[in-house]
């Protein structure tokens, strides 16, 4: 039992690293995905083809290889930047592995984010785009007021999936010397020679975090999509609005 407790402490010490790694890489992946989706939805065929191929290429490479490539390239990239801008402050003994791991994870999930965005955009009926144009909306107004609010609701389940997958994939970052949950567990396992116990504890911790995030995203999905659900909620909402506006004016007070 002693082993389990010590190991749990060790693994819990790695939870903040795992979560921050996941969060930053999801944000970066979303940003990269938006950039990629601009390319994929471009009007010019060569640009579109180029970005499609890029997406498929990024999608086809294992995450482990991204991590290894970025980890290998740290010294080259950082040293290059250092010389280019003449900082001469890069300490080769302390490479920024964390940032490069974030970039690697983000890059491997960017095409999925791009897919998510493009499918969400395609679900908006064409009539709405045309209605916006007819209503004299500028492109910015069209996107921010009509299209994006609907896209976000549609994309939430997919986004939750990718988030949770990324959370799991961040365990691979222990292969490039980042001490998140898996790294701590491996470290403690080799130190105490109690491999089975450590991995069991680690698995259970991941499972708990997975369930928490899954349920959170399910709730979020329900909350965001409450006007999309068929039947009751939208009708109730409408009636409430009707009731409120009319009572303010003092007419139809009896209507329910």
């Amino acid at each position: 039992m002693e082993v389990y407790r010590t190991c749990l402490e060790k693994v819990l010490a790695g939870v903040p690293t795992t979560l921050s790694l996941t969060l930053w890489s999801v944000l970066l992946a979303l940003l990269l995905g938006i950039l990629l989706s601009f390319g994929v939805l471009s009007k010019w065929t060569p640009v579109r083809m180029l970005f499609s191929v890029l997406c498929s290429f990024l999608k086809g490479i294992p995450i482990l290889i991204f991590l290894y490539v970025f980890h290998t390239a740290i010294d080259g990239i950082m040293g290059g930047i250092d010389h280019l801008f003449a900082f001469y402050t890069y300490d080769i003994r302390k490479p920024p592995t964390y940032i490069f791991a974030v970039f690697a994870l983000a890059l491997s999930y960017a095409p999925y984010m791009c897919d998510m965005i493009t499918t969400a955009l395609h679900t908006i009926p064409k009539g709405q785009w045309e209605a916006c144009d007819a209503g004299g909306f500028t492109a910015w107004q069209k996107m921010t007021r009509i299209i994006i609010p609907q896209c976000v609701v549609i994309a939430i389940p997919n986004f939750g999936n990718h988030f949770v997958n990324l959370l799991k994939a961040s365990s691979l970052a222990c292969m490039v010397t980042i001490m998140e949950m898996m790294g701590e567990a491996r470290n403690y396992a080799t130190m105490s020679q109690r491999f089975l116990e450590c991995y069991i504890v680690c698995a259970i911790c991941y499972w708990v975090i997975f369930i928490v995030f899954e349920q959170a995203f399910r709730l979020l999905e329900k909350r965001a999509g409450r006007y999309l659900q068929p039947g009751v909620p939208i009708a109730r909402r409408r009636r409430k609005l009707f009731h409120m506006t009319n009572t303010q004016e003092g007419i139809f007070e009896e209507v329910k």
């Binding site: 799991k168 898996m182 089975l196 991995y199 680690c202 698995a203 991941y206 499972w207 997975f210 899954e214």
Partner: peptide
């Protein structure tokens, strides 16, 4: 369980 834990953890668990 299989969906909620990373593949690497499962692999190492089975390996041990």
């Amino acid at each position: 369980f299989m969906r909620g834990t990373p593949m690497m953890v499962q692999l190492l668990l089975i390996f041990i």
